[in-house]
């Protein structure tokens, strides 16, 4: 009976109203999965300077990251979703960080924690430091501070949660294209790294 009234297109406004009157609601799997994704970031156990100390503090009794369900710090990148780049990224660290990033399964996110990871901080012009994690990784959320307080870290994670809920991860064709591109880029990155190694 409901179907007879409809125009046969469940995305248009009038049909939706008819459906809502009959207590039928449509959602998509995408939203359901994003709901899950946004509520269970498992960060990688990674850190290189003083920011990780704040990250550790956020897991302890006073701040308790577990309230949001983000407390499962995995030491293996294969089971982690979130790379929290805490601390400056040095040239020596780059291959390690790139490898960790490559080992994490999709969908995955990067959070730059602290001034050094956001922009290089006080070491911006240093001979061995990259000016920010975004020069090598696709950073999703920047959390400034030197170091940021655990509250700031939580705020950053909640911002990431909003972002994840709005993102469409189902675009398979684009993903395919991106993968092809990434392969090409991999070669370029390798070439660049080899050049850099030669230079050093």
């Amino acid at each position: 009976m409901v179907l007879e009234k409809m125009d046969g297109n469940d995305s248009n406004e009038k049909d939706r109203k008819i459906l809502a009157e009959a207590n039928i609601f449509f959602t998509n799997l995408q939203k359901l999965f994003n709901w899950g994704r946004a509520r269970s970031f498992w960060p990688l156990n990674y850190g290189s300077n003083c920011c990780p100390i704040e990250m550790m503090a956020s897991g302890l009794a006073r701040f308790d990251i577990a309230r949001f369900g983000y407390e499962v710090f995995r030491s293996c990148p294969r089971q982690a979703d979130l790379l929290v780049v805490a601390g400056p990224v040095t040239i020596k660290l780059r291959p390690v960080l790139e490898r960790l990033w490559a080992q994490m399964p999709e969908p995955k996110w990067v959070v730059a924690l602290g001034n050094c990871a956001c922009s290089g901080g006080p070491f911006k012009d240093g001979y061995s430091i990259y000016p920010g994690a975004d020069s090598i990784l696709p950073v999703d959320v920047y959390i400034p501070g030197c170091p940021p307080r655990p509250e700031a870290f939580f705020y950053g994670l909640l911002e990431l949660k909003k972002k994840v809920e709005q993102t469409d991860y189902s675009r398979y064709d684009e993903w395919k294209k991106a993968k092809k591109l990434a392969k090409k880029e991999d070669k370029e990155v390798r070439k660049r790294r080899e050049k850099e190694e030669e230079r050093l």
């Binding site: 359901l32 999965f33 709901w35 899950g36 994704r37 509520r39 269970s40 302890l60 009794a61 308790d64 577990a66 309230r67 949001f68 369900g69 407390e71 499962v72 979703d81 399964p105 999709e106 969908p107 991860y169």
Partner: peptide
């Protein structure tokens, strides 16, 4: 600590969110 407490009463839907996420992983 308090443990998970944001999702549902006492955070009891936390495991469901985790499971959904794990199903969507590469």
């Amino acid at each position: 600590r308090l443990g998970p407490n944001r999702l549902g009463p006492g955070g009891c839907f936390q495991t469901i969110a985790d499971t959904l996420k794990l199903m969507g992983k590469e």
